[in-house]
Every structure is written in structure tokens, then in C-alpha cells.
């Protein structure tokens, strides 16, 4: 589904990604872990071209999208949802409008159809009673659940999660992870950058350990967590677990 070949990215002189190659199949749940500054987020943001790669290629559904622009780029992003660390809900719109704005503006649905879909999604994320509230009236955990609902409204083929629980108070992390688990169980293709090792161990079909802009080790969660080969990974796990 997604195929990355020798992806490199530098900001000015600083090399952030140093040759990443990976293939991700439909239905996979890939969890990316690693120390801060290892390039995890940049890697994720390159996938939907929020960052333009310096070199290398990215293919999505058998199409080279590395240099996609304009309409083509927008089409890619419609199928590749993203959930941000800071939610980035639209503060001037109600929760319902936050969820419906994308399908309505893209003319995929009428407002009425989108409203109906929003009601289903709000029920899914357990916030049916907050449809007419504004984002500022929600807690962090609720905001992130709405952000996920907003992404789901576009019916994406894959969702990128960029540290979705890092900005949350500890007591709210659970509700968001629980929702993500349900999505995973429903068969959604997911690429998750996170520090939640419990989530990685439980949900991931594959765990990728990144450091210094490179994939240092990857494999099934049981192998990664119980039998790490790479010394950097061993060191990292010793510190976070």
C-alpha cells in the first residue's frame, strides 16, 4: 500500500532522515518508536508530504507521489488521514462542523449526509452529546477523539498518528488508546508514532525502532520487546520500560 524507498530529508545542513526504505501492507498496524530527535515524526510527515522529501521516493497505492502537487496531492491526502499531537481542531467551528467540513467541501456528501455520518462517528467515539459544542469546551482526550472522528469522516485508507497521546494529561491517555485499539481491531491500516510501549506491544503488527534518521531494527512486537538485537534499541527499552 505504501512503499518508501531510500527516503532522505534534511533541514538546511541537518540530516533528519538518512535513507529509510519500508513497505507497508494494507491492514498493517505499524508502530514507530525511538528516542526524540530520531526522525519518527518527520518520517510520518513525509508520508503525506507535509514535509517535502530531499530525495528518495514514496509510492501510495502503486502511484509515485513523491512530487505530487495540487489536485493530485490533495487526492492523496484525502485517502491518508492524519491525527496530530496537538489535535489541531478548528476552533471556530462546532464539533459537528469540524467533522463534516472535509467531506462537504470536497463535495463527497451533502451537509445532511455528512451530519448523519457525523452522528455515527460521534457515537463511535462516545461523544454524541457534544456535537454542538466548540473545541475549547472539550477536554484534551475528547479533542483527540474528535480529531480521530474528523479523519474518519473522509473514510481514509490509512491513518497516520503523530504522537496522539503525548499532549494529554495521563488520565486521558487511556480513552484515546482504547479508541485506536478499536480502530485497529476493525481492520484500519495505521502508522503510529508513539511512546506508549504498552500500546505497541498489544496492537502493533510490526514495530519499527528508529534512531539517527535510520530504521535500526524492526519486527513483531514480541521479538522487539523480549529479544532486542540492536544495542541502541536495548538501551532505549531499558530506559522507557
Amino acid at each position: 500500500m505504501i512503499s518508501v524507498n531510500d527516503l532522505k530529508k534534511s533541514f538546511n545542513e541537518t540530516v533528519v532522515l538518512d535513507g529509510i526504505s519500508i513497505d507497508i501492507e494494507k491492514g498493517e498496524k505499524v508502530v514507530v518508536i525511538g528516542p526524540s530527535g530520531s526522525g519518527k515524526s518527520t518520517f510520518l510527515r513525509c508520508l503525506n508530504l507535509l514535509e517535502q522529501p530531499t530525495s528518495g521516493t514514496i509510492s501510495f497505492e502503486d502511484r509515485d507521489i513523491t512530487h505530487a502537487k495540487g489536485k493530485e496531492l490533495n487526492e492523496v491526502r484525502m485517502k491518508m488521514g492524519m491525527v496530530f499531537q496537538h489535535f489541531n481542531l478548528f476552533p471556530h467551528l462546532t464539533i459537528r462542523r469540524n467533522i463534516t467540513i472535509a467531506p462537504v467541501k470536497h463535495r463527497l456528501m451533502t451537509q445532511a449526509q455528512a451530519d448523519k455520518r457525523a452522528d455515527e462517528l460521534l457515537a463511535l467515539v462516545g461523544l454524541s452529546d457534544r456535537a454542538d459544542a466548540y473545541p475549547s469546551q472539550l477536554s484534551g482526550g475528547q479533542k483527540q477523539r474528535i480529531a480521530i472522528a474528523r479523519t474518519l469522516a473522509m473514510d481514509p485508507d490509512v491513518i497516520l498518528f503523530d504522537e496522539p497521546t503525548s499532549a494529554l494529561d495521563p488520565e486521558m491517555v487511556g480513552e484515546v488508546l482504547e479508541l485506536m485499539k478499536r480502530l485497529a481491531d476493525g481492520g484500519m491500516t495505521m502508522i503510529v508514532v508513539t511512546h506508549e510501549m504498552g500500546f505497541a506491544r498489544e496492537v502493533a503488527s510490526r514495530v519499527i525502532f528508529m534512531a539517527d534518521g535510520k530504521i535500526q531494527e524492526q519486527g513483531k512486537p514480541e521479538d522487539i520487546f523480549t529479544d532486542p538485537k540492536n544495542p541502541r534499541l536495548r538501551d532505549f527499552l531499558a530506559r522507557v520500560l
Binding site: N74, G81, M82, F84, F90, A102, K105, T151
Partner: peptide, 22 residues
């Protein structure tokens, strides 16, 4: 916040639509 541009872009909105609607 720049995150608003990115949120717009991640939903497949072009620059001008993000500008006008968000």
C-alpha cells in the same frame, strides 16, 4: 497556529481553500 494549515492540508484541502475556510 501553523497546525491549522497542516490540519487543513491533511484533510486534502489546497492552500486557498484552507485559507478561506479555516
Amino acid at each position: 497556529d501553523n497546525g491549522q494549515f497542516e490540519a487543513g492540508a491533511s484533510l486534502g484541502f489546497g492552500y486557498s481553500r484552507t485559507m478561506i475556510s479555516i
